[in-house]
Simulated assay, not measured.
Amino acid sequence: MCRGLAALPFACFERAKEFKTRLRLLLHKTELGHELSSSKPLWGTKMRYSSEEVLGWKQSFDQLLKSKNGLSAFHTFLKTEFSEENLEFWLACEDYKKTRSKSKLASKANRIFEKFIQNEAPREVNIDHETRELTRKNLTSATSACFDEAQAKTRTLMEKDSYPRFLKSTSYWKMTEQASSHGTSKQSHT
């Protein structure tokens, strides 16, 4: 079906990408165990966050990344957008930088590359060809900095694109309301 004229490979590529997206949607619905159209926040409503913590996430992207609960909430939000691989890659790079053993650096670097960077990787992040090739070259002598460029591009993408949508999401606003009302009810009981 995808053979023939020169224009067809692009059409086949686009069709394959669309199929991959639809397949991920089905898998995520099953994984999450509910419909994405649910009005409930996807991260548990039983979780209680302080008003300061939740409002702190709005102060800066760095504040969000420093918060364990913030990371969890943002990750869940990214799942609804089918872009959680960006945060997972960023976190894998943060963990990778902590690796002290030279022998483990190379094997960890290869696993991260195969999972997130190489073409058609199972959790492929959206980076340009030059960054992908630079990262591939960096693997020949794996250092703690070999993913720095790719990690920075992924972080910028999340900060400029996903993070503003997270802050405008219904789920984030419900969390701020819940945290505020929880703080208010605590104060009235003391």
Rank of each mutant, 00 (worst) to 15 (best):
Cys2Gly: 15
Arg3Phe: 07
Ala6Ser: 10
Ala6Gly: 01
Ala7Thr: 03
Leu8Val: 15
Pro9Lys: 08
Phe10Lys: 12
Ala16Gly: 09
Ala16Glu: 14
Lys17Pro: 02
Phe19Met: 04
Lys20Val: 06
Thr21Ile: 09
Arg24Glu: 11
Leu26Arg: 13
His28Cys: 07
Lys29Ala: 10
Lys29Met: 12
Glu31Thr: 06
Glu31Gly: 02
Leu36Arg: 02
Lys40Val: 07
Pro41Arg: 13
Leu42Asn: 10
Thr45Arg: 14
Arg48Asn: 13
Arg48His: 10
Ser50Gln: 11
Glu52Gly: 04
Leu55Phe: 07
Lys58Trp: 04
Asp62Trp: 02
Lys68His: 07
Asn69Cys: 06
Leu71Lys: 15
His75Thr: 05
Leu78His: 01
Lys79Tyr: 00
Thr80Trp: 01
Glu84Ala: 10
Asn86Gln: 07
Phe89Asp: 14
Leu91Met: 15
Ala92Gln: 07
Cys93Ala: 05
Lys97Ala: 13
Lys97Cys: 06
Arg100Tyr: 02
Ser103Ala: 14
Lys104Leu: 13
Leu105Ser: 03
Lys108Ala: 10
Lys108Met: 11
Arg111Lys: 15
Glu114Thr: 04
Lys115Ser: 11
Lys115Cys: 09
Lys115Gln: 13
Gln118His: 02
Val125Trp: 03
Asp128Trp: 06
His129Leu: 09
His129Gln: 10
Glu130Pro: 00
Arg136Glu: 11
Arg136Met: 05
Leu139Pro: 02
Thr140Ser: 11
Ala145Tyr: 06
Glu149Ala: 02
Gln151Tyr: 00
Ala152Ile: 04
Ala152Asn: 12
Lys153Arg: 14
Thr154Glu: 01
Arg155Ile: 08
Leu157Gln: 07
Leu157Thr: 06
Asp161Tyr: 12
Ser162His: 13
Tyr163Arg: 09
Pro164Thr: 06
Ser169Pro: 04
Thr170Trp: 03
Thr170Ala: 05
Ser171Tyr: 07
Tyr172Asn: 03
Glu177Tyr: 02
Ser181Met: 12
Ser181Cys: 09
His182Pro: 00
His182Gly: 10
Ser185Glu: 13
Lys186Pro: 00
Gln187Thr: 08
Gln187Gly: 01
Thr190Gly: 09
